[in-house]
Design a protein around this nucleic acid. Structure first.
Length: 416
RNA sequence: GUGGGUGUAGUUCAAUGGUAGAGCACCGGAUUGUGGAUCCGGGCGUUGUGGGUUCGAGCCCCACCUCCCACCCCA
């Protein structure tokens, strides 16, 4: 038997319905805030992610779903969205051809070669936004507001953790400070952290194994080392968030797993749920566009995990429209049912036709199983007299309609 | 990549190393055009895959794979 690839899921039935509604709602909210949809290919040259996301990141080092194509080109299935959108932004001269701020969003599948677990899969889906050409802290605030707005819409209990990780200049200074601080305590660190100290000292703050930030109250904080420009930006951002009415907590140890962030960095965690409770994350990336080969363009954005979001949305958040089902009880009724199906289709009602003639009892049993609210039956009598029988499954009420009385039928099924 | 658990009918699970079963679901029926209950009838499935031990393996051993949970990391 052939089964799905590890870490990849099928989606169908009622879950697929709710997933579709979730995406629909997100798209509506995006349209209202003038974010345009941005679609990019699933496959990219692996070099894009190495350069964009960062050679030293785990995502690139060990989680890339990559392979050689038939011409021997090294390609990767995108592990995140920002690098691709930036590549397209540069490739099409969007910064020159479109007014700024340029606001884009995506809802798309991504791939990471990881060991699956709760809330984590090899093919997963993210919703995200990217805003180009605007360096203001207010735009960062709007970006974070956008994420919170989506979560609010779905009634999710969340907490925003906010930090600034500075720019090239001040982060270098902070980095030195960190190295100095932890080098003095090297033998108290776990093995991983000793490596991190060499490669990417900022990530050391994230460690849960030896958990340095919990053990030492006096670990240097990035926010104490911000340059004037960055500190000012961070302060203005907080004011703007207050103005947007977005609640947040300052978390000086938020670093991000992707190398491209500057200044603003944030994560949103769900207050309910288990270990994989990071539902969204993002920040500013003022150097990425130029790193990819474009002109100097400030940018900011976030990504939200749709599987994680979906799990947080109550199951009864969306309800399917009541189903109507039609049955023919004899051969003579089949074509009349076909005609009726056509009429119902034009009315956009949720209608399921079963053309195989069956006894009334069977038809009702089937209607019961398919969860139909209204049943339409054409038997010998109805077929001969141009009628159709409607039964309300909940009340057991029956009404005989003229088969052409579509408006009467529609109002009957719309009442409840 | 690491650690733990798991894998038997569509599904949920049984089966002291000795011929693989049940509930649910599904299909059919209980006489004429009225549903959810009840009753009756209907299941050989390469026991995840491949090796090995044994007279004999669903059960023991090895490898690989799946799924679940956690770590790492992230959304």
């Amino acid at each position: 038997m052939i089964s799905a690839i590890k870490g990849m899921n099928d989606l169908f039935g009622e879950k697929a319905f709710r997933w579709g509604k979730m995406e629909e709602d997100i798209k509506k909210m995006m349209a209202a805030a003038d974010f345009g949809e941005f679609r990019t290919p699933i496959l990219e040259e692996i070099a894009l992610f190495k350069r964009g996301v960062g050679e030293t990141t785990d995502v690139v080092k060990k989680e890339m779903y990559d392979f050689l194509d038939k011409k021997g080109r090294h390609v990767a299935m995108r592990p995140e969205g920002t690098a691709s959108v930036v590549r397209a932004f540069v490739e099409h001269g969007i910064g020159i051809n479109y007014p700024t701020p340029f606001k884009a969003f995506y809802i798309a599948p991504f791939f990471r070669y990881e060991r699956p677990q709760k809330g984590r899969f090899r093919q997963f889906h993210q919703f995200g936004v990217e805003i180009f050409g605007d360096e203001t802290p207010q735009m960062d605030a709007e970006m974070i507001f956008t994420a919170s707005r989506v979560l609010e819409h779905f009634g999710i209990d969340y907490e925003i953790h906010l930090n600034s990780i500075g720019c090239k200049k001040c982060r270098a200074a902070y980095r030195e400070k960190l190295i100095e601080y932890f080098s003095a305590r090297k033998d108290e660190l776990c093995e991983d952290c000793r490596t991190r100290l060499e490669l990417n000292p900022l990530r050391l703050l994230d460690c849960k194994a030896c958990d340095p930030k919990a053990r030492y109250a006096d670990v240097p904080k990035m926010t104490d080392y911000l340059c004037d420009d960055c500190r000012n930006h961070f302060e203005e951002l907080q004011k703007a968030l207050h103005a947007f009415g977005v609640p947040f907590v300052l978390d000086p140890f938020i670093v991000r797993g992707l190398d491209y962030y500057t200044k603003t960095a944030f994560e949103i965690v769900a207050k309910t749920g288990g270990s994989q409770n990071a539902v969204a994350g993002g920040g500013r990336y003022d150097n990425l566009v130029s790193d990819i080969g474009g002109s100097d363009t400030p940018a900011t954005g976030f990504a939200m995990g749709l599987e994680r979001l979906f799990d947080l949305i109550p199951e009864d958040f969306y309800k399917e429209a009541p189903l109507s089902a039609g049955y023919a009880l004899c051969d003579e009724a089949v074509l009349q049912l076909v005609e009726f199906t056509k009429k119902m289709s034009k009315e956009n009602v949720r209608f399921l036709a079963d053309y195989k003639p069956k006894k009334l009892k069977k038809a009702l049993q089937k209607a019961e199983k398919t969860n139909a609210s209204f049943v339409f039956v054409i038997g010998e009598d109805e077929a001969a007299n141009g009628k159709i029988l409607m039964k309300n499954m909940a009340t057991r009420e029956q009404t005989l309609f003229d088969k052409n009385d579509i408006s009467g039928i529609i109002s009957a099924i719309s009442e409840k």
